[in-house]
Amino acid sequence: MKTPLRELWTGFRSLLTGMRVTLTQFFKPPVTVPYPYATLPIPERYRGHIELVRDPETGMSLCVACKSCEKACPSGCIVVEGIKREGDKKKSPTVFTVDFTRCSLCGSCVEVCPTEALRFSRRYNLAGTDREAYFLDLLKRLQAQAASTPTPATKA
C-alpha cells in the first residue's frame, strides 16, 4: 500500500516541478528578436553571395579573369570572361556573373582566387518574385558600389 502511494506522490510532485520550471520562465523576458524591427548583427565572416573587391588604388576590380573560380565552383554558377586591354599588364573581366539560384554558398571561389578579388557580400534578406533577380552581374554591382562610395582614386 505504501509504495503505490509514494509512487503516486512522486509522480504528482514531478508534475508540480515541471510547472514551477515553466512558471519561472514565464516571468523572464522574451529571448526573441522582433525581426523586421530589429536585426541581429551580421558576423564578419557571413557568407552571402559573392561580390567583387575593389582595388583601393584604382577603384577597379582586382580580378584578373583567370577563371579559377569558374573551375572551382561545384555548381558551375560563375561565368567569367576577360580580355587584356591595351597597356594593361593583366587581364581584366568583361563579364562576371553569378547564377545565385544554383549557388550553394560554399565559398570555394573566394578561397581559390589568387588575387583576393572576391569576397562574400553581407546581403541576407534576399527575396524576389522572379528568377532573373538572382542572375547577378557582379561588375555592375561593383560599379554601383563605386558610385555610392568613392575611393580616394576616383575622388582624385
Binding site: T22, Q25, F26, K28, P29, P30, V31, T32
Partner: peptide, 13 residues
C-alpha cells in the same frame, strides 16, 4: 500570449 510567455516569446504583437 500565455504560451508565448512560457516559451519566452512575445506572442502576437
Amino acid at each position: 500570449k500565455g504560451a508565448a510567455r512560457f516559451q519566452r516569446r512575445p506572442g502576437p504583437t
